[in-house]
């Protein structure tokens, strides 16, 4: 009965003050990464195998996961549709984990390689930047992950990101350069900015200004598809 009670306004306000771990954790987990279990992770592998055709795995974070949009509206699902429309038999596996950093990249790469993918898109790093992790550390992690793919002779495309201007020119430059250097050093293809034409456009993003909305994901799908079409 007290549910409908409009509690005294005054008091309710204090909620603010008492933002508890309840919310805290939700937020926290937004940043959390998830690593692929190396052993006995047969599930993903078998799920991927069951559908047949060639496999494209997108290893990413909340951008790939499609945070805030339905799974079917996220760009990996859209790319799969595009490929199928073009008459090719590819299956796109969304391996986006909201909040994940490059720290999870090597172990997740190992996990994914067990599914024997034909092409891997490595779209990690956004959370490293947002959390201010040292660029050198992120670069090391990504390099390790790329090396694993190379070892398994799986084609890999690296997705780059720009940090928003508010992080300062210095950090932005270092961050951007990291992807360019990695691509050069490891000789992999680079999509310089996977959020091209999307970032900073309020019509294409959710109210948080960070995650693309459905329209944003469409543009991302276009961009990414265009960049990898020749590899399919």
């Amino acid at each position: 009965m007290m549910e409908d009670c409009r509690p005294m306004k005054a008091i309710r306000t204090v909620k603010n003050f008492y933002v508890l771990s309840c919310f805290f954790l939700t937020w926290l987990c937004g940043f959390l990464a998830s690593a692929a279990a190396v052993e006995s992770g047969g599930a993903v592998v078998s799920a991927a195998r069951s559908k047949g055709g060639q496999k494209l795995v997108i290893l990413g974070d909340s951008l790939t996961e499609g945070y805030g949009v339905a799974q079917t509206s996220a760009f990996p699902a859209l790319i799969e549709k595009k490929i199928q429309l073009s008459g090719k038999k590819w299956q796109v596996i969304n391996s986006g984990v909201g909040g994940s950093t490059t720290g999870s990249a090597p172990s997740r790469m190992k996990w994914i390689l067990r599914a024997k993918p034909d092409l891997i898109l490595l779209f990690l790093g956004a959370n490293d930047g947002l959390r201010g992790i040292k660029v050198a550390e992120s670069e090391k992690n990504l390099a390790a992950a790329i090396a694993l793919a190379k070892q398994a002779s799986v084609k890999l495309v690296l997705g780059g990101l720009y940090m928003p201007p508010n992080y300062g020119e210095d950090y932005r430059t270092k961050f951007e350069k990291m992807y360019v250097d990695l691509a050069k050093d490891q000789s992999v293809r680079l999509i310089p900015f996977i959020l091209k034409d999307v970032a900073g456009e309020s019509k294409l993003n959710l109210a948080d200004g960070i995650h693309p909305n459905e329209e944003g994901h469409k543009i991302m799908a276009e961009n990414v598809y265009a960049a990898i079409k020749d590899l399919l």
Binding site: P7, N16, Y18, L20
Partner: peptide, 24 residues
């Protein structure tokens, strides 16, 4: 987003709701 001091973090702190219910 328009927040009053009451709505600023609606989704948290059920303790406050409990407390306000208690006060009523």
């Amino acid at each position: 987003q328009v927040d009053t001091s009451e709505t600023a973090s609606e989704d948290s702190a059920r303790q406050l709701k409990l407390f306000s219910d208690y006060l009523s």
